[in-house]
């Protein structure tokens, strides 16, 4: 079964060699990375090429990699250095307060990505495609609505939540957040408690927005354990029985 994934990866390398950046197989899933410039060409090939036939875009989502790998709890050094194990400062969106800034850990050009999940009904194959937006401050990725119609709302969602702009999208409006919302709430530097709260003001007889009054509250710190205590098995073991075909 994982063999078919390897075959797909090989076929992708052979067919799209110079257009793509990398192909990986992990956890019995194939991930293709492609640059924003090459996206449309690769996507069209993936849909129309007889050996791929990815007819459907199952899912599209934005990812903000700016805090990838950051933790809030010392695990290795703490026993030597004593308490406290807690890491200082605001380090996750759950702890951010109104007006706090957060620095990005991501390599420039690797902050925002759009991740596409494709499904081929003809070949019973799945594929993940990741596209990084080259500019962190103004992330732009071409739209794939011309190739898969279902991308329409997914791209609107990624735009709304992450501020990724999909060029040539027919109708790039906000979709999930409120009318007149400011900011992109799923970015890692957007506080979990938000920026504004809303209430009805009986004196002015209308709804008013004010800075949030609630305090951020995180009960469990973000802990990373690099030791293998928590790894039950080699994570990359192809799981023949339980995984998909």
């Amino acid at each position: 079964m994982s063999n078919s994934k390897q075959q797909l990866a090989e076929a992708l390398r052979a067919a799209l060699g110079e257009n793509i950046e990398s192909v990986e197989v992990a956890y019995n899933e194939v991930t293709l990375e492609v640059s924003a410039e090459q996206l449309l060409e690769v996507a069209a090939r993936l849909r129309d090429d007889a050996q791929f036939q990815f007819q459907q875009l199952v899912d599209l989502c934005g990812v903000d990699y700016s805090q990838f790998g950051r933790d809030e709890w010392l695990t290795e050094e703490a026993s030597r250095g004593g308490f406290s194990r807690g890491v200082e400062d605001n380090v996750s969106s759950g702890r951010l307060q109104f007006g706090d800034e957060l620095d990005s850990l991501a390599v420039p050009g690797k902050r925002f990505a759009a991740v596409y999940h494709l499904l081929s009904y003809a070949n019973n194959q799945r594929l993940r495609v990741r596209v990084f937006a080259a500019d962190d401050d103004f992330p732009v990725i071409p739209t794939v609505t011309g190739i898969w119609r279902s991308a329409d709302w997914y791209e609107r969602e990624a735009f709304d939540l992450f501020g990724i702009l999909f060029s040539d999208h027919p109708d790039l409006r906000r979709i999930l957040t409120d009318y007149g919302f400011v900011g992109h709430p799923f970015r890692k530097d957007f506080p979990l408690v938000g920026h504004v709260e809303m209430r009805y003001d009986p004196e002015r007889e209308r709804v008013v927005y004010e800075p949030v009054s609630i305090e951020p509250r995180v009960l469990v710190p973000r802990v990373k354990r690099t030791d293998n205590r928590y790894l039950i098995d080699e994570p990359d073991t192809p799981d023949e029985a339980a995984s998909d075909a």
């Binding site: 956890y27 469990v220 990373k224």
Partner: peptide
């Protein structure tokens, strides 16, 4: 119940 368990680095669908 205090910390939970950690997952290896990676992504799945």
């Amino acid at each position: 119940f205090t910390e939970g368990y950690t997952l290896p680095e990676g992504e799945v669908y």
